[in-house]
Write a protein that binds this DNA or RNA. Structure first.
Length: 236
DNA sequence: CCATTAAAGTGGT
DNA sequence: ACCACTTTAATGG
């Protein structure tokens, strides 16, 4: 539904201080943004972007968690990115292509802010603060992507698992139970680019080394420094 | 609470 | 790497 009544609360009191829209507009011009915002409630497991579908807009996570995936020619799912509050999803539709190269799926009940392609393109062409900020974001994403590709070409399975755990830790943190982004073993394996059996074996090994603790789905990192040391040689 | 199903984990090839 | 099997956790009536 279109958010005429600002049904999810005033964006300026929204918890997402890092939201691209919020931080690049002043309060006066922001009213127009809010008027063009659609709020989408997405249930757990629901896909809101399909791989290969025509680009129709861009999403921001208001609350909840989602994964961005790409299906390989072998049919295996690769998780490209994990997203939580404040994150952009669907920006990869904004190149010269006309279809999304990725799929996006909610991992829990998730609320999304959505802007239609037409509106968002117009904003990018007229609001340079936003455009510049987005450009920095795209550059960062490209940088991360290249760094990851370089590392993963040389890493063995266990090292990829460590890298995955650390990436989640650095991005989302952990509470007393474990990492703040809970995934099934299969999904975690898809992030690390491996299979659940191998991921489980790596986790067991790390547990025996005393670097992590596993309690059901919760994975708690007990020794961040030691984990970092294990993959240090790849970060040159 | 129990029964059914899904996910986690292990071991063998 | 892949498959088959056991164990454990989640779901739902």
């Amino acid at each position: 539904m279109k958010d005429k009544n600002n049904s999810k609360g005033d964006c300026f009191s929204c918890q997402n201080s890092s939201c691209f829209m919020k931080k690049n507009y002043d309060p006066e011009s922001y009213a127009d943004v809010v008027a063009n915002r659609y709020v989408i409630e997405c249930k757990k497991g629901q896909s809101f972007i399909m791989e290969g579908a025509p680009v129709q807009g861009i999403f921001f996570v208001y609350s909840g968690k989602a994964k961005v995936t790409r299906t390989g020619s072998n049919g295996k799912e690769q998780v490209i990115r994990l997203a939580a509050d404040g994150d952009i999803i669907g920006h990869r539709g904004y190149n010269r292509g006309t279809v999304y190269p990725i799929a996006a799926t909610a991992l829990e009940d998730t609320t999304l802010c959505y802007f239609h392609h037409k509106y968002f393109t117009h904003e990018m062409q007229t609001h340079t603060t936003l455009t510049y900020d987005l450009m920095l974001f795209y550059a960062d994403e490209l940088d991360k992507s290249e760094a990851r590709a370089k590392k993963y070409a040389q890493m063995n399975v266990k090292e990829k698992v460590i890298d995955t755990l650390l990436t989640i830790y650095e991005r989302f943190g952990q509470n007393s139970k474990g990492l703040n982004f809970v995934l099934s073993r299969t999904e975690l394996a898809n992030v690390a680019g491996t299979k659940s059996e191998q991921l489980i074996r790596s986790l067991t090994a790390l547990k025996n080394q005393g670097l992590i603790n596993c309690e059901g789905k919760y994975i708690f990192i007990t020794d961040v420094e030691k984990l970092r040391e294990e993959i240090d040689k790849f970060n040159f």
